[in-house]
């Protein structure tokens, strides 16, 4: 059992949760993920580490309440105990000195991008962050991301804040403005379709592009293969070979389809859950 020490809603459906887990906090690095279960009947939900505090022994997670499992987690309060908390899992980010890096965050992707951006800046990289959301009220952690960035661009699909449009536009401009290998690496983390188009955007510029995949998982330790993904023609497991991969090598269409395997079941589960909570 791991205690939730802080819990707040930071945007519609988006929740920040600080969990007491000293052994995990002691080991967590940018890029790692954890697996969380709300209760005994819950799913094992993989969430990328958004921050960690070794002194307090805590891990910070950001989650979007969209299905039964994430809604259950979002409804928990400070002082509640998670049924299970496992990690840190996966490989940590490779924190090299790339020169200039572009960190593209889409939606809740801001959460995992933040500690990676911070660490890359500490390594001496110049950090350009591009943070996108559908609309203004879905933006969060702008200040935190700005505090670890040399440049910080915000986009919204509807133009309600920052630049109107998708993150791929400032990304493309950024690459065009800085040719000749000035940008050593692009990180793109967010919804799969956003990572796909960021990878497509950087491909002609031949800039190394790293994505962090959030595939469906069960155990998170390489045992089941549910998180398998085709990278460069080879089947890899996101949990133990990733979660970060070269975005230019990922078979995005296969990945997008694999994320929809349980669409029917997810709806069925959610309907049933909402019915039980509404009729006490």
């Amino acid at each position: 059992m791991n205690r939730i020490v802080e819990k707040r809603q930071i945007a519609p459906k988006i929740h920040e949760m600080v969990v007491e887990a000293p052994p995990v906090a002691a080991k967590a690095q940018p890029g790692h993920f954890v697996i969380v279960m709300a209760d005994e009947r819950g799913e094992r939900v993989p969430l990328t580490v958004a921050d960690y505090d070794r002194g307090r022994g805590t891990i910070t997670l950001i989650l979007m309440a969209v299905g039964t499992s994430t809604i259950k987690l979002a409804e928990m309060k400070a002082g509640d105990d998670l049924f299970a908390f496992i990690g840190p899992l996966g490989h940590a980010s490779q924190l090299d000195d790339f020169g200039t890096v572009v960190m593209v965050a889409g939606g809740v992707g801001t959460a995992p991008i933040f500690p990676i951006a911070r660490a890359l800046r500490e390594k001496g990289n110049r950090v350009i962050s591009i943070q996108g959301a559908r609309t203004r009220e879905l933006l969060f952690w702008q200040d935190r991301l700005a505090s670890v960035s040399d440049e910080h661009v915000i986009t919204t699909d509807d133009g309600s804040f920052g630049r109107k449009g998708l993150v791929t536009e400032p990304l493309k401009e950024c690459l065009e403005r800085r040719p000749n290998g000035e940008i050593g690496c692009v990180y793109a983390i967010g919804p799969a379709v956003m990572m796909k188009f960021c990878s497509k955007t950087t491909e002609p510029f031949k800039v190394k592009t790293i994505v962090s995949l959030n595939t469906i998982m069960v155990d998170g330790t390489g045992m089941c293969g549910g998180c398998r993904v085709n990278v460069g023609g080879e089947t890899r497991f996101t949990c133990v070979d990733g979660p970060e991969f070269d975005g230019h090598l990922v078979d995005w269409d296969e990945l997008l389809k694999r994320q929809k395997i349980y669409i029917k079941e997810e709806k069925c589960s959610l309907d049933q859950y909402l019915e039980t909570v509404e009729k006490p």
């Binding site: 009947r41 094992r44 039964t68 069960v218 045992m223 293969g225």
Partner: peptide, 22 residues
Amino acid sequence: NEYLTRSNLMKAYRFPEYDTPI
């Protein structure tokens, strides 16, 4: 491994009473 883990450990055979689908 995945099929049996979902069904046995996660009790997906009792979905949606348990949350893990199969």
